[in-house]
Amino acid sequence: MIGAVLRYLALLPINLTFVFLAFLLSPLLGAISLLAGPRLPGILQWFSTLDADLDGGISQRVKGYKAGLAGWGLWWQRTCWICRNPAHGWQSELLGMPAAGSIIVRQVISESPKNQWYVMETAKGVRLFCFKRDQPLFGGFYLKLWFGWVIKPYDGRNHHYAFQIGPKRS
Rank of each mutant, 00 (worst) to 15 (best):
residue 73 G to T: 06
residue 74 L to N: 11
residue 160 H to N: 06
residue 134 D to C: 05
residue 124 K to F: 00
residue 90 W to V: 00
residue 90 W to D: 02
residue 65 Y to K: 09
residue 100 A to N: 11
residue 60 Q to R: 14
residue 61 R to T: 06
residue 129 F to Y: 05
residue 71 G to S: 10
residue 134 D to N: 12
residue 142 Y to E: 07
residue 99 A to Y: 04
residue 98 P to F: 08
residue 100 A to M: 12
residue 121 E to Y: 01
residue 81 W to M: 08
residue 91 Q to D: 05
residue 119 V to A: 09
residue 143 L to K: 04
residue 158 N to H: 11
residue 72 W to P: 10
residue 149 W to T: 01
residue 100 A to H: 11
residue 156 G to L: 01
residue 109 I to K: 05
residue 133 R to D: 15
residue 80 C to W: 13
residue 116 Q to M: 09
residue 128 L to F: 05
residue 83 C to I: 11
residue 95 L to N: 02
residue 94 L to W: 06
residue 155 D to P: 04
residue 57 G to D: 06
residue 156 G to D: 03
residue 155 D to F: 05
residue 117 W to M: 07
residue 55 D to E: 14
residue 73 G to N: 13
residue 123 A to T: 02
residue 84 R to Q: 14
residue 76 W to V: 13
residue 130 C to E: 15
residue 158 N to K: 01
residue 85 N to E: 07
residue 108 V to T: 08
residue 132 K to T: 15
residue 158 N to T: 03
residue 144 K to V: 11
residue 74 L to G: 10
residue 134 D to L: 11
residue 120 M to W: 02
residue 146 W to H: 12
residue 115 N to K: 02
residue 135 Q to G: 06
residue 152 K to W: 07
residue 112 S to L: 09
residue 154 Y to R: 00
residue 116 Q to N: 06
residue 78 R to N: 14
residue 130 C to N: 13
residue 60 Q to S: 13
residue 135 Q to I: 15
residue 160 H to L: 11
residue 54 L to R: 03
residue 143 L to G: 03
residue 57 G to F: 09
residue 77 Q to Y: 10
residue 91 Q to M: 11
residue 97 M to P: 02
residue 85 N to H: 15
residue 125 G to Y: 00
residue 85 N to C: 12
residue 74 L to M: 14
residue 105 V to T: 14
residue 69 L to I: 01
residue 99 A to Q: 03
residue 84 R to H: 13
residue 116 Q to S: 09
residue 102 S to Y: 04
residue 83 C to Q: 15
residue 160 H to T: 00
residue 108 V to S: 12
residue 67 A to I: 00
residue 137 L to G: 10
residue 126 V to F: 06
residue 67 A to D: 14
